[in-house]
Simulated scan of single mutants.
Amino acid sequence: MNDQSTGHRPSPGPGRPLSIALQALDPDLPLPVYAKSGDAGADLRSRADLTLGPGERALVPTGVAIALPEGYAGFVHPRSGLAARHGITVVNAPGTVDAGYRGEIMVTLLNTDRDEPFRVSRGDRIAQLVVQRVEQAVFEVVDALPVSERGGTGFGSSGTA
């Protein structure tokens, strides 16, 4: 069952994959796929050729648009190999694709290397899309928060390593 006007589909049952409507905006590019069974992220590819100089960033099109069901979001993560070998990351990692967004998924890549430019070729795997169930919260104003073991301690306070 599929509501064609919104692309929303019922949530899958246990052990069944989530079906997501995908529009291929560039039919010559491979569609997002999971490299291995059980992987969390599906590879997104570059629709463009470009060079990122040291410290430069660019908004890179992926050639795909999706219609996520309500209650889900897509999160665009850097690819660990690009980060480790070339210093290429996603600036706003993870980038968020909301269920209501229907435009092309874009990735803001950043070259963190100080010396070397990085060449992105059309079809290169540039990021990963992780789809997750999400909840919307109702924020309730209170005078005080319940006590917790951690309390108000922040960055770096949970250990030395």
Rank of each mutant, 00 (worst) to 15 (best):
P117A: 00
V147K: 10
A161R: 09
Q136L: 01
S121R: 14
P12E: 06
D124P: 04
F139I: 03
N2K: 15
G151V: 10
L109K: 01
T108N: 09
T153W: 01
G71H: 11
E140I: 02
R150Y: 05
L44T: 10
H77N: 13
Y72V: 11
T89H: 05
S157F: 12
L29R: 02
V138I: 11
S46H: 09
P146H: 08
R47L: 13
D115V: 04
G81H: 15
D3F: 11
R45L: 04
D98V: 00
A21S: 08
L68W: 08
A99N: 14
H77A: 12
V91K: 07
A40Q: 10
L44V: 06
P27W: 03
F155N: 07
T6L: 14
A42N: 09
D3N: 12
S37C: 03
R47P: 05
L145E: 12
H86D: 02
T153P: 06
E56L: 00
T153M: 08
G74Y: 01
R122Y: 06
G41R: 10
G53T: 01
V60Y: 07
R57T: 10
V107I: 15
L68D: 01
R125V: 01
L18A: 04
P117Q: 00
D26S: 12
G13V: 01
L82G: 05
R102V: 12
F75K: 09
G74H: 01
A48P: 11
D3A: 06
R47I: 03
V33C: 05
H8N: 09
S158R: 04
A58I: 06
A35M: 08
R119D: 12
V76Y: 11
V33D: 06
Q136P: 00
P14R: 14
A84M: 04
D49C: 03
A35D: 10
L82F: 07
L22D: 14
D26R: 14
V141F: 12
T112F: 01
R133T: 07
P12L: 13
R85P: 01
I105S: 09
R102W: 14
T6S: 15
V60L: 13
A48V: 15
T89K: 07
A137L: 05
N111K: 00
Y72P: 14
G7Q: 05
A58T: 07
F139V: 03
A24K: 05
G7Y: 05
E140N: 01
G63A: 13
T51G: 07
V120P: 00
V141M: 15
D39H: 10
D98C: 03
